[in-house]
Design a protein around this nucleic acid. Sequence first.
DNA 1: ACCAAATCTAGAATAATTCTAAATATTGCT
DNA 2: AGCAATATTTAGAATTATTCTAGATTTGGT
Lengths: 146, 146
Amino acid sequence: MSTHANNALHPTGLAQKLADSGLRSTPQRELVYEVLLTKRDHPTADEVFARVKPELPGISLATVYNCLETLVQCDLVRAVNFERGPTRYCPNLRPHAHFHDEATGQTHDIDLPTVLFAKLKAELPTGFDANAVEITFRGKAKTSSN
Amino acid sequence: MSTHANNALHPTGLAQKLADSGLRSTPQRELVYEVLLTKRDHPTADEVFARVKPELPGISLATVYNCLETLVQCDLVRAVNFERGPTRYCPNLRPHAHFHDEATGQTHDIDLPTVLFAKLKAELPTGFDANAVEITFRGKAKTSSN
DNA sequence: ACCAAATCTAGAATAATTCTAAATATTGCT
DNA sequence: AGCAATATTTAGAATTATTCTAGATTTGGT
C-alpha cells in the first residue's frame, strides 16, 4: 500500500534518529510521531494530544509539546505556522510548500520542484544567505478529496 | 531624498483610503501610519506603541492594535508573521518577500520579480486557486547597512 | 448646540505556549 | 541486583500577544 513516496520512519528508525541527537526513545515520543504519520492533516498540539490520549491516557499536554519540539529538533517533523494560528506539525520532510484553504481552514502540502527553491534563493541580493525558504499559498481549494 | 520607489501615502491620501472603507481619519490612525512609514523596520504593535506614545501620550495599546488592524483592512499596511513571533507591520505594498536574519532578528524586505509570484501560483495542482503567496527566507544577512 | 455613530480607552479575558519543580523512569556502573 | 546520575514526564503556574468589553470621548451632519 506504499503507493506514494513516503518518509515514514518507524520505531527503530525513530529510536536511531533520536539517539543521534543523544535522546531516548520513549513511548510518548513514539506515539506522538506515529500519530503524525498516521493522519497527515497538520494537526495542532491540542489535536495531537487528543489523538494520543486514548492510547496513553496519562500523557500530559506539556509532554506532547515536548515531544513535538523534540521531533522538530531531530528533523523528523516540521513545524508549520500560518498567521498567528496555533503551530501545526507535518512529518513530510521533502521540500514543499503549504496551501491554506480559506474556506475549510485545512492545510495541504504542495510539492514543488526543488529547483524552484534554488531559483528563489538565487534571487536574493548579495549579502543575503538563506538556509531555508518557506512558501505559503492562501486561497480556495476545490479538491475532490473534500 | 526620494531615491527609491516609495508608496508613502500622506495624510490626505490616508484619509481618502480610509473614507473608501467608510472609516474616519483620526489623529491616532494618522500617527500610527506615519510611524510605520518613517521607520520601516517592521515594528511590532508594542514597538509602534512606544514610538507613538511621545506624540500622543494618551494613546492606548488597544488603540494601536485597532489602528494597525484598520490599516491592514484598508490595504495600506501588511501584517507579517514569522514563526509565532509577534505580528510585525510593513507599509511596503509592492509584492515582496521577507528575509529574517537569524543573528539579529531583523526583517528585511526582498523585492522579487512579479513574474516569480505568478510562476509559483502556476505550480499549484489543478483545483488549487491561490489569491496570495507568501515567501519567507531565513538565514544570515551581512549587509553593509548593519 | 445636539444626536447618533464612530472611535478610543483601561482593564479583564483568552489562547497558545513555556516554565518550574517535583515525581518517574532509565541507564550505566559496580 | 542495587544505586546513583541523568533524562523524561507531569501538573499546574506563568507568560505573551492579542482580543474583548463596556463605558467615555470625539466627530460629522443637522
